[in-house]
């Protein structure tokens, strides 16, 4: 369970993110990781597709059997590794 924080990257990224935020949301390319319950939110994401609803492509979804399974560490790890937002839906 050893992990090294990639300090220079992180700094760069923070600055970039901050700079981009200032520049306005249009140029800020937020990256969102979603955790979705198999039975509801994942189904909803499917439905969005079935209905051909378009949304920002900057979302990736990890399916969980239930959001009860969502461990603190998943969220923290995602942030640690630089995602801009975590979306939990269930």
């Amino acid at each position: 369970m050893t992990e090294t924080a990639s300090a220079p990257d992180a700094v760069g990224e923070e600055t970039v993110a901050a700079a981009e935020k200032k520049a306005g949301p249009s140029s800020w390319d937020a990256r969102i990781l979603a955790f979705a319950c198999h039975f509801c939110a994942f189904a909803a994401a499917d439905l969005a597709g079935i209905m051909r609803l378009s949304y920002s492509p900057n979302v990736r979804i990890i399916r969980l059997p239930c959001t009860g399974t969502l461990d603190h560490s998943y969220v923290l790890r995602a942030f640690e590794r630089g995602v801009d937002g975590v979306f939990v839906a269930g």
Partner: peptide, 8 residues
């Protein structure tokens, strides 16, 4: 559903 269909 979660890629091709929503990013046509």
């Amino acid at each position: 559903e979660q890629c091709a269909w929503c990013h046509m």
